[in-house]
Design a protein around this nucleic acid. Structure first.
Lengths: 119, 119
DNA sequence: CAATAATATAACGGTACCGTAACGAAAATA
DNA sequence: TATTTTCGTTACGGTACCGTTATATTATTG
């Protein structure tokens, strides 16, 4: 097998990850929602609506709506910033951590396909 | 750096890929649509609505709607099966190939993050 | 204190998805 | 030939997203 990731392997990798994601319908997040969720969990706090909107290059209502959905799913939570009450700070949750743990496991499980010359 | 893919690296990898995907809004495909597209391009033809529905574990109208969207985007095309005119066969297109080429390049570009111990 | 700016959200119209159910066309079967 | 089965699509009601615009709340500035 090849040692380096290659385009063909990358597509097979993505294919299996996507099939797993679709199959065990954990939560059908859009690309934007997932990008927001990962930003919250991987980048250093604090996270605000404005900050997330700027980082993703979308408008603020997009972030508000995504946080509504993610909040209902229990994947993150909101809290008023007490030092500047215009701000809303986004907190992580246990369920969100578990969700990303499952996603990470799915990725690691399929990672070997990246370097395969065919699949 | 670590030699093996690990959960933390996997999430950072996915984060960068998602941000790239959101930023250059090539086409905002859902997880299902992308799974369908990859199945069409990576698995051996012929592909039918029923076959795709079974493989992804979804209903046929889901496939029909996804093919409508992918067709409008030019990422795949439909053709009547002349030997059994109830069937619709899904064909690949040049634009679909180019789209997946870009996706693969994005994945390969970020693949090194999978094995990083932190990001 | 009054006026302005900044923040997040709500409201609006439009679009697209979902699952279920019904439908027409074609094939298989009796 | 008449009936049943299979296949893909359409229709329906419901939900959620999008971008734009307007609003309420809070800070800041004059």
């Amino acid at each position: 097998m090849a040692a380096e990731p290659n385009p063909q392997g990358a597509l097979h990798f993505w294919h299996h990850v996507a099939l797993d994601t679709v199959h065990d319908d954990d939560a059908d997040l859009s690309a934007r929602q997932l990008a927001i969720l990962l930003t919250i969990y991987l980048e250093t706090p604090p996270h605000t609506v404005r900050g997330l909107a700027g980082k993703l290059g979308v408008t603020k209502p997009v972030i508000t709506r995504a946080l509504n959905t993610l909040g209902v799913m229990g994947l993150c939570a909101r809290r008023r910033d007490q030092s500047d009450k215009r701000n809303v700070l986004i907190r992580r949750t246990v369920d969100g951590t578990l969700y990303l743990d499952r996603l990470a496991a799915n990725l690691v499980k399929n990672a070997h396909r990246l370097t395969a010359w065919n699949g």
